[in-house]
Design a protein around this nucleic acid. Structure first.
Lengths: 180, 180
DNA sequence: CTTGGAAAGTCAACAAGGCTGACGTAAAAT
DNA sequence: ATTTTACGTCAGCCTTGTTGACTTTCCAAG
């Protein structure tokens, strides 16, 4: 079975932190923390008649202005049809601008309008405030561990995706793609 | 505004870990890690024609056998109509048993049947395997930090909820409520 | 040059799982 | 006796995921 709970350490280290009970606590902590993590943006979004899907799109468009729909698709991990609905609403409401590619006219390059930037700021201010408070309370060392474990939880694919975004090229894409 | 990024430390500590950039990375790490975190259970659930909602119910019923519908409601933070749909399916499929309370006959106490326990094991084995690998890769100190930050992210309410479950009384509820 | 496939995006329709509102019933509490 | 609590249920709505069936555009091979 899978319950090799309190195994003695082969390398001499205490492996008590690998107990099934510890793992279960970690799983539940992820569940509750993620709920809190999305709570503030959710409230703001509801006031604007948007949902989490809109938030995610706005977040990454802000992070990499000029990225294409398919690039965004790869980041979000949803179908293009699903994303399209969200994107259409944002474009119609004037929060996002979709410019046709100069070199490849099939591609749409996405940008936040000033209104879009305003909402992005509102959302990320709230979310960062919570993270900042948590980071401050836990301290730098805990934060380092936090990040380490989160990265270890990711798949190889996702970790690469994450790493590629982390650097935040910002603006480089638009230049690379030859946009205005 | 909210961008007090690289502020100098009032207490003398380096506050570089509170940079907007650092916070943004943390936010994205949460997003990607949570996706990976739910990926394995999601695949198993799809094969059984269930969704995440069923998983959550099964998880907490396993954690606290004999808990009532309203207790589960409080843990999950959804409406009873939403939970009821999920619960009805699980009861009909013979994964969950709902016993009428002995002392309070209004209450339904929930238990996993052997079939329910089997699915729970399948799901949690997969999820724990991922967490175990991540914990092992990151090491005990990182795990401690991980847990600290997650708890700090939670609201006061959620933290209390989490703490109350963490102890895992398991079986104590059924006795307290006078169940068979 | 044309033609056929791949890539980008759109429209339509469906399902899961949230939500609100209204109602019913039994049991408990006052 | 009345009110409140715990639970179930019906009806209907919304968001956000899905698949399937198209265009339009680009590129490469014949």
């Amino acid at each position: 079975m899978a319950g090799n709970s309190t195994a003695a350490a082969p390398g001499g280290e205490s492996l008590l932190f690998l107990t099934d009970e510890q793992l279960r606590n970690g799983i539940e902590a992820m569940f509750f923390a993620y709920r809190a993590f999305t709570a503030d943006p959710d409230m703001i979004l509801a006031a604007h008649d948007y949902g989490r899907a809109h938030h995610r799109a706005i977040h990454f468009i802000n992070r990499q202005p000029g990225l294409t729909v398919s690039a965004l698709l790869a980041l979000l991990g949803v179908t293009k049809q699903s994303l399209n609905r969200v994107l259409r609403a944002l474009v119609e409401d004037g929060l996002v601008e979709a410019r046709v590619g100069r070199q490849d006219k099939r591609a749409r390059h996405l940008y936040l309008t000033p209104a879009g930037q305003a909402l992005e700021r509102e959302l990320s201010d709230a979310q960062r405030a919570r993270m900042r408070a948590a980071y401050r309370a836990a301290g730098p060392q805990a934060v380092a561990g936090f990040r380490q474990v989160l990265e270890a939880i990711m798949d190889t694919d996702l970790r690469q995706t994450y790493q590629s975004v982390k650097g935040a090229p910002a603006r480089s894409l638009s230049e690379r793609e030859g946009q205005a």
